[in-house]
């Protein structure tokens, strides 16, 4: 009978020791990297939760020495601007993705467009604001929700397009072959078979893009600016007026020397992070159900 090999770990062996030390360091790195997330969440709950009340959602931002107040108008503004951005980016992204994934995946223009979309994901968000400023604000002569929405749509577009392309590609080839074999035109196969099947993946991408856009501040700073009043007091024309948003409110209030405003900034951060995380987790659940 031959002796069975010795599988036990011997820490006096320098090789095993080195491996052990490096593993410990890696575990340490992973734990350290999680600390900021938990610290941010804890502070949001501690400092933002303290101010959490219905008043936040129903009142306007306070002036310098006021107490109380809320940011109802900023929530409306964020929702409106993200809505405008989605109206532009979602159809654009999905129709573009259909070409990239289905009708011309290997054409030169598809390669170029895909590359452009990937590069766009890396364009600094502030430059989306600069672009919207020069295209909308300088032309119309006013800061507006439309300008903010256009800036945000630039940031949503590549995410929507690239995830939709991936989702469409994941649909098994057999399904579209069956559809075309039954006499569907490629367009009919797309709308009746491929898109419904790819929908969970596409929705995941759209929600991730919305979550990202909702938290963006830089593109709104000088396109939507800010407003201390409710939107739509003067009807739909308010879309061309300066508009409040949660993110810009946090930025403005964080630099003020008043305790009330700083508390509101924390509360607004809590609301914003709750919105963003809800979207993220929902998109994850939808994405998982797909598999």
């Amino acid at each position: 009978m031959s002796a069975s090999p010795d599988f036990s770990r011997n820490f006096t062996d320098p090789r095993a020791l080195k491996s052990f030390i490096l593993s410990t360091i890696t575990v340490g790195c992973a734990i350290l990297a999680c600390i900021p997330l938990f610290s941010v969440l804890a502070m949001l709950i501690l400092r933002g939760g303290r101010r959490f009340s219905l008043e936040l959602f129903t009142s306007l931002p306070p002036t310098a020495f006021d107490s109380g107040g809320g940011f109802g108008n900023a929530i409306v503004g964020t929702v409106v601007m993200v809505g405008i951005a989605s109206l532009i980016a979602v159809p654009f992204g999905i129709i573009g993705a259909i070409y990239l994934a289905e009708f011309g995946p290997h054409t030169r223009i598809a390669t170029v467009a895909r590359f452009c979309a990937k590069t766009m994901t890396g364009i600094p968000s502030i430059l989306a604001g600069v672009f919207a400023y020069s295209v909308v604000v300088m032309v119309t002569g006013t800061y507006s929700a439309v300008a903010g929405g256009i800036a945000l749509s630039l940031l949503m577009l590549p995410t929507v397009m690239l995830t939709a392309e991936e989702a469409i590609q994941m649909v098994p080839a057999i399904m579209r072959e069956a559809a075309v074999g039954m006499g569907c035109t490629p367009t009919q196969a797309m709308w009746k078979v491929v898109l419904p099947k790819a929908m969970p993946g596409i929705i995941t991408g759209v929600m991730l893009a919305i979550a990202r856009a909702a938290g963006e501040t830089a593109p709104l700073l000088f396109t939507a600016l800010f407003s201390d009043y409710w939107m739509f007091q003067g009807g739909a024309g308010d879309l061309m007026e300066p508009t409040a948003s949660l993110a810009v409110l946090i930025y403005n209030f964080s630099g003020m020397p008043f305790e009330n405003q700083i508390q509101l900034a924390w509360a607004a951060s809590l609301v914003l992070v709750l919105m963003v995380f809800t979207l993220n987790i929902l998109s994850r659940l939808i994405g998982q159900r797909k598999k």
């Binding site: 997330l37 502070m43 949001l44 909702a214 938290g215 946090i250 900034a265 924390w266 963003v276």
Partner: peptide, 22 residues
């Protein structure tokens, strides 16, 4: 753990700014 790291990316940068200051 993967989800936690991905959520780090989801926190808006203005919230990081606020956290950084205070």
């Amino acid at each position: 753990l993967k989800s936690i790291i991905e959520l780090l990316a989801a926190i808006p940068s203005v919230v990081y700014g606020l956290w950084g200051i205070f």
